[in-house]
């Protein structure tokens, strides 16, 4: 064969290469690759776990945020309710005060009316008594004009009252 090409030696080289490939695969390539894969899987697992932890923390944060918002809403509602209650109480007190004032005014008016009526009755009674007294005196003085005596008496009585 040209160039000293020898089929037998080519086959021997093939055998040599096949043994080398198989040997290196089982002795070196496969174990090293397995170890590398194992380490990759380990770090992947760590990464996954960290990602899970992160996701859980995010979820907890969201839950806490939601709770905070709910608490804020509740506080707002409570405040509104308290304000409403205070406002209602103030209105009620105002209404009570107005009612009381109205009662006081009405009572005062009634009392004033009663006083007025009493004074009127008193003055009428006094007038009647004066009239009766004057009539008695007139009846006691003979010859006198009744009408003039009455007027004198009443003028004297008024002066007496003015004093």
């Amino acid at each position: 064969m040209p160039l000293n090409i020898n089929l037998q030696q080519i086959l021997l080289h093939w055998m040599n290469l096949a043994i080398l490939t198989g040997g290196l695969y089982f002795l070196l390539y496969k174990p090293v690759k397995q170890f590398m894969d194992k380490r990759s899987a380990y770090y992947q697992e760590l990464e996954d776990r960290a990602a899970d932890g992160l996701a859980q923390a995010e979820r907890l944060k969201a839950e806490a945020q939601a709770k905070l918002e709910a608490a804020d809403d509740e506080i707002h509602d409570e405040r509104m309710r308290a304000q409403q209650a205070a406002s209602d109480a103030a209105q009620e007190q105002l209404a009570q005060a107005e009612e009381q004032a109205r009662r006081i005014v009405a009572k005062a008016q009634a009392e004033a009316e009663q006083s007025k009526e009493r004074a009127l009755r008193e003055s009428q009674r006094e007038m009647r008594e004066l009239a009766a007294k004057a009539a008695k005196k007139l009846a006691a003085k003979p010859g006198a004009d009744f009408f003039d005596q009455f007027l004198d008496l009443t003028e004297g009585g008024g002066a007496h009252e003015g004093r």
């Binding site: 160039l3 000293n4 090409i5 020898n6 030696q9 080519i10 086959l11 080289h13 093939w14 040599n16 290469l17 096949a18």
Partner: peptide
Amino acid sequence: APLSDVNAAIAMGTL
């Protein structure tokens, strides 16, 4: 070197 032998080079190429 093994591959300076033409038979080794042919074996490697054909394989």
